[in-house]
């Protein structure tokens, strides 16, 4: 599987579309129902998957582990959010930590991790593209 990361609005989805020839209907939002994600070619805003799982009092790490087994060739796109001031709201702190932990798990699993900055890809794990 391939993991595409970076800050907000850095061109992560555009990169995935252009590089992997994805059609619009092949990209599923992370907030979609779980059974849609198990067959998705590409999932974007995976941070929304983390927050919706946490909102249902489910463990996003456990769910992500299951998803990676049932959909082993998926392309996952996720925003990096942990580089700011620690939020005052407890739920925001938990969300931010869960995105970090889930990202570490997906990156550990991925054969390739690509970080997009200003639309420019940098491969930080795996063979260059």
């Amino acid at each position: 599987m391939i993991f595409i990361i970076g800050g907000s609005y850095q061109g992560k989805t555009d990169f995935a579309v252009n590089r992997f020839g994805l059609k619009t209907d092949e990209i599923t939002e992370g907030s979609a129902p779980y059974d849609k994600l198990t067959s998705a070619k590409c999932i974007r805003h995976f941070e929304d998957f983390v927050s919706s799982a946490a909102g249902r009092n489910e463990d996003p790490l456990e769910l992500t582990g299951k998803l990676l087994i049932s959909n082993p060739d998926v392309i996952i796109i996720m925003t990096e959010i942990g580089c700011g001031i620690i939020p005052i709201e407890k739920s925001e702190r938990i969300y931010r930590e869960l995105v970090g932990k889930t990202g570490c798990m997906i990156a550990g699993h991925a054969e390739k991790v690509i970080r997009i900055t200003c639309g420019i890809p940098a491969v930080i794990k795996g063979e260059t593209i």
Partner: peptide, 12 residues
């Protein structure tokens, strides 16, 4: 030897 490690929250 001095090594600095940076990164976001819960990034290992």
């Amino acid at each position: 030897m001095f090594i600095l490690i940076s990164g976001g929250c819960k990034n290992g």
